[in-house]
């Protein structure tokens, strides 16, 4: 599973980088460089070779575990991933927790109190949340907590302690919590209408037991799938948040690499992210089986 995906990802990414105009030589040599200098730089990077040659020599290195060095700043891609991934992972983990706790809680409340004022209020807030761009909510948070109240750092990673992650995680987490709440609400509503819930209620079980033990357990199946996949999405989709909050993570760096046509960097980061995605897909499959015995061994 992993190997064909990796080959696919690498081939598509490499072709795209090959096709789009411009290369990193533009940035390396700067203005006024002699034509020879430019040609030498192209040659040194092997960019004058035909596509298959470039691709296979890169892949040969990758299979030996060598992700190469950045064209632009000569830094090791492996080191870069090692250093940057923990930052992105922390950000993702915290936002994930926020997203799960807030999202499921709000979703369940909203479903249980369907069509009450609480429900419409919650739905209003989530609508607002969906419609607010991350750029804007980030700056709002920064100004409220960082500039005016001065209780949290504005940006950066500082010593890496948790306070530097609170604001970005809130922004990223609440943004995805909104989607989670909506999903939870609709799943819960569907389950609550089922016959076995009515049966449970008619048995005289307390509302709490009905909701948390019977309804939620069944509603969890689609939610859990979405949950694990969304961790993958958060992990790879944190670029804007990282840039605004000045976090030295992998997301903002990937964007940099793409814009500068830094081939080894783009390839390295994409392959790494592909591994993560495949892993999470696998986790989704496993979790299905764990939560819902009916699917097991299917």
């Amino acid at each position: 599973m992993l190997i064909p995906v990796m080959i696919g990802v690498s081939l598509v990414t490499f072709s795209l980088l090959y096709i789009v105009p411009g290369n990193s030589v533009e940035i390396i040599v700067g203005e006024r460089a002699r034509e020879e200098t430019r040609e030498n730089a192209v040659k040194e990077l092997g960019l004058d070779k035909p596509f298959h040659h470039q691709y296979f020599s890169y892949m040969a290195k990758v299979t030996r575990g060598d992700l190469g060095k950045s064209y632009i700043n000569n830094r090791s891609i492996k080191e870069s991933i090692k250093k940057r991934f923990p930052v992105t992972f922390k950000l993702t983990l915290y936002s994930f927790i926020i997203s799960v706790v807030v999202g499921i809680f709000v979703g369940v409340i909203s479903a249980v109190k369907q069509n009450t004022s609480t429900d419409s209020f919650v739905r209003g807030v989530t609508l607002l949340g969906v419609s607010t761009p991350v750029m804007f909510s980030s700056l709002l948070m920064i100004y409220i907590f960082g500039v005016w109240l001065k209780i949290l750092p504005v940006s950066g990673v500082g010593d890496g302690s948790i306070k530097y992650f609170i604001l970005p995680s809130l922004v990223l987490g609440l943004n995805s919590a909104v989607f989670r709440a909506r999903l939870t609400r609709s799943c819960m509503l569907e389950v609550i209408r089922q016959d076995y819930i009515r049966t449970a209620r008619s048995k005289g079980l307390s509302e709490k037991v009905v909701i948390y033990k019977h309804a939620m357990r069944n509603a969890m199946i689609p939610i859990a799938t979405n949950l694990i996949m969304s961790f993958g999405y958060l992990l790879t989709g944190s670029a804007i948040t990282e840039t605004i909050f000045g976090l030295p993570g992998l997301g903002s760096e990937t964007i940099r690499a793409v814009f500068q046509r830094d081939v080894p960097a783009v390839m390295g980061y994409f392959l790494f992210q592909a591994v993560i995605f495949v892993t999470f897909n696998l986790l989704v499959d496993i979790s299905y089986a764990l939560i819902n015995p009916r699917i097991r061994f299917n």
């Binding site: 920064i142 960082g146 750092p153 504005v154 940006s155 605004i244 909050f245 030295p248 903002s252």
Partner: peptide, 18 residues
Amino acid sequence: FRIIQDESTAVAEFEAGN
């Protein structure tokens, strides 16, 4: 030197006195 890519963030850092 801090490395701050987003100019709005730099403005906020300055206004926060950092």
